[in-house]
Nucleic acid binder design. Structure first.
Length: 307
DNA sequence: CCCGGAACCTGAAGGC
DNA sequence: TGCCTTCAGGTTCCGG
């Protein structure tokens, strides 16, 4: 699932191939991939334009054009494959769900794969139409510990839900939120506004560390993600809790548990990330029934499959 | 306003 | 063996 480190890797890999190139054509195999505007107008806005820059904002990939912007979002299963001139894509494309193909003037073809078809593209004059509501970039200098403290203080929902809220902080998804909370030794269902100053400080360091590590590993290939050159990322090899259900915690050996937060599976170590019960009851705005259910869920591993 | 949950979507995996 | 159900999670929308 492309999150900040994966999209950053896609951007870095694609940069030398697309900047300065003109988009000669687009094959829209599934026009539902276009979010805005309508597909015919989308093509009119993009075809013939020259790519002058490539940027990332949160999980969005932004092609800066000589006029306007082409923006892509991979959602869960989207990925891009760049096929340079003289290469044969037949084998790579076999059996894959190709949603669109961009043809560049250097005879490079950019394939937008998406197994589940939730990925989207936009053609807009002002990129803020698409990314304007995103929270701060967690790796930028203006994302300070005080900024994080202010964001967390605004939310009484579980800290895990705040970390993955794109309007609170941009770019963090399920995997890196779990990893950051583990590194900070914070239980995912702790209400965000109830975190201590010490916990916020640890979380700040952890967020930046796990994202930097993800970029250094060129993204996590846990599902369908691969790099534009076709290779896999390595970041998932360093994961300590994400997607490691019932495997031993690398710190204490306790089996990793999984709890649902906002209908998202959250992996954590029950020993290293203990829940402070009174904190939850006092600071959580959720109905008492939901709180009790969460507490119960936390203590009991709710998973039907056997180890 | 804020929160939780459903819908969108398809393929993998588990249960019977 | 094969069909059916469940689950995966980023985003948006709706209802309490």
């Amino acid at each position: 699932m492309p999150e900040l480190p994966e999209v950053e890797t896609i951007k870095n890999d694609l940069l030398p191939l697309v900047v300065g190139r003109t988009i000669e054509g687009i094959e829209l195999i599934e026009s539902s991939i276009v979010s805005t505007p309508r597909p015919d107008e989308f093509l009119r806005r993009i075809i013939g334009r020259t790519v002058t820059g490539l940027e990332r904002r949160g999980k969005y990939l932004i092609f800066r054009l000589d006029k306007g912007y082409l923006i892509m979002h991979m959602r869960m299963t989207g990925s891009l494959l760049a096929v340079p001139a003289g290469s044969d894509a037949t084998e790579a494309v076999r059996g894959a769900r190709v949603r669109a193909i961009l043809d560049l003037d250097n005879d490079t073809h950019l394939y937008f794969f998406d197994r589940r078809g939730l990925g989207k593209m936009w053609a807009v004059g002002d990129k803020e139409e698409v990314v304007g509501r995103l929270g701060p970039e967690p790796l930028q200098p203006d994302f300070t510990p005080d900024v994080l403290k202010g964001i967390l203080a605004l939310h009484r929902s579980p800290v895990k839900a705040v970390l993955t809220d794109q309007q609170a902080i941009a770019g963090i998804g399920n995997m890196y939120a779990d990893e950051a909370l583990f590194e900070a030794r914070i239980n995912p269902i702790t209400p965000a506004s109830k975190l201590s100053a010490e916990q916020v400080g640890r979380l700040y360091v952890a967020i930046r560390q796990v994202l930097q590590s993800g970029i250094a590993g060129r993204g996590a290939s846990v599902d369908t993600y691969f790099r534009p050159g076709g290779g896999l990322g390595q970041a998932h090899l360093k994961f300590k809790v994400a997607h490691r259900f019932r495997k031993p915690c690398p710190v204490c050996g306790t089996p990793i548990e999984r709890v649902m937060v906002r209908n998202r599976g959250s992996y954590f170590c029950p020993h290293c990330q203990p829940l402070i019960k009174y904190t939850l009851e006092e600071g959580d705005s959720a109905p008492r029934k939901v709180v009790q259910k969460r507490l119960k869920t936390h203590r009991v591993v709710v998973q039907s499959n056997q180890p």
